[in-house]
Design a binder for these strands. Structure first.
Lengths: 252, 252
DNA sequence: AGGAATTTGTGCGTATGTATC
DNA sequence: AGATACATACGCACAAATTCC
């Protein structure tokens, strides 16, 4: 099964979440403001209240909104861009900033070993290891410098399958890899798993990033899956713990 | 407003999630196994399908279950203990292990500055800074050594308000602070926010933990809130990045 | 202080779409 | 192709928290 050509429309609740996030980003709703009530919003957006609630819950989990029972739904103070597509979770120490990216290098490489991980639960049941399939096809490896509010904060190394994307130049990649995946590869990232620890910065670390090769840095490994549960991306991120932090919110 | 005496029953969907997590921990459902269908489970548990789905979604977000459309709901392979109360998110590099804790120290201290943070969204609207209220009451500071499968992996420093808990000894604290909060203080932790970076290990680091004072370690700061949005806990965790990682899952 | 109105949280039930087997 | 199982969407009733009068 290839990753190309599954250009299905997004579920309504994701469209709504995306719409609201864009409106907030555009300043239509400003930080601290109270949104209309669920009933009013659902009415103007022509969706059921339950559907809207799912969108609002998602935006709350992402830290875009705060919902207070009996009071209302509020926009949290500062916001970055592209809340939905952008699963970037690094924030400056005084709060989220505007994320941008600068491409440092684009090369073609053999698929790294970390992308061979299997889905654990199914494997144990289905028995047959559902064919390691694509095998060890080539991957694109992209190196980027990430900034928040123009401040360089992290270095990224990203791998994704080269099939479905025979040619790739730095110009084709924008600030958001997820937007690129969706618009150019028709691949929608539905789930990510991050593992955060600390590690020496890579040997290609150099100014203008404050990281020094071998010096201690925050370190993130990310696996991203498509809506069809196929592994779509593997990335490593080294960030400067003096300047930014990884933020994770969980509610029950 | 004090934190004591709000012993309200948990919402049904949390009770169900708790029940399922305990059954899995007890081995009633084993790793890789497929659970009964939503309809069957909802029927035996005497709840509506929608309510059960909320429980299953929560357990999936916590990494306990994996749900596959058209196939079923599966138990993920290895599991720690107390999935619901325990929001511990450190895992060994080969997967989650059984978490335990050893109390190193319990002392009474003035409230740290980090616990004075305000709810941003409301503040901007309500204007009046809703009374810094409790002011700078005393806190208990607990230091613990955390292990996974008997392997020491992290050091923790935890603060929580001393009111409602005038006396505290190491014996009164179990392996799970959240269980302690719930059973002894009647405080239910509903939401946590973690910020992960890297930092030098504290000067009280010592064997049997592999961390060395001043050496680079993974570093987590956590704020925990009650269901009534009151700040309940502040903690710092230093972990050995050679042995374990912080794991964060997000799906849309 | 207190009660009514407002607003989100919880729970229930149903119908339809889509992926898997 | 048919049966099974989860995903999405709709709608309603009541509880709980907040706000306003």
């Amino acid at each position: 099964m290839n990753a190309v050509h599954n250009a299905q429309p997004l579920p309504v609740y994701l469209q709504i979440a995306e719409l609201l996030a864009r409106q907030i980003k555009a300043g239509y709703w400003h930080g601290g403001e109270r949104l209309p009530t669920e009933a009013a919003l659902a009415d103007t957006l022509k969706v059921a209240v339950g559907t809207l609630r799912k969108s609002l819950a998602l935006l709350e989990a992402q830290g875009v909104l705060e919902r207070i029972q009996g009071s209302g739904t509020y926009v949290r103070q500062v916001q970055g861009t592209q809340q939905i597509y952008e699963l970037f979770r690094l924030e400056l120490r005084d709060g989220p900033g505007l994320p941008t990216a600068q491409i440092l290098e684009v090369v073609r490489q053999p698929r790294p070993a970390q992308m061979d991980r299997q889905a654990v639960a199914r494997q144990a049941v289905a028995g047959q290891a559902q064919a390691s399939a694509a095998g060890a096809g080539d991957c694109w490896r992209v190196r980027r410098l990430r900034s928040l509010n123009q401040v360089p904060v992290a270095l990224e190394e990203i791998w994704f399958a080269a099939d479905g994307c025979p040619d790739l130049t730095a110009q084709a990649l924008g600030d958001s890899m997820y937007l690129f995946y969706q618009q150019r590869l028709q691949v929608w990232i539905a789930r990510v798993e991050d593992q955060i620890s600390a590690a020496p910065a890579p040997d290609w670390a150099a100014p203008p990033c404050a990281l020094v090769p071998g010096a201690c840095a925050g370190y993130i490994e990310r696996l991203s899956w498509t809506a069809t549960k196929e592994l779509a991306e593997f990335s490593k991120t080294w960030f400067d713990p003096q300047v930014c932090r990884y933020t994770s919110r969980l509610s029950q």
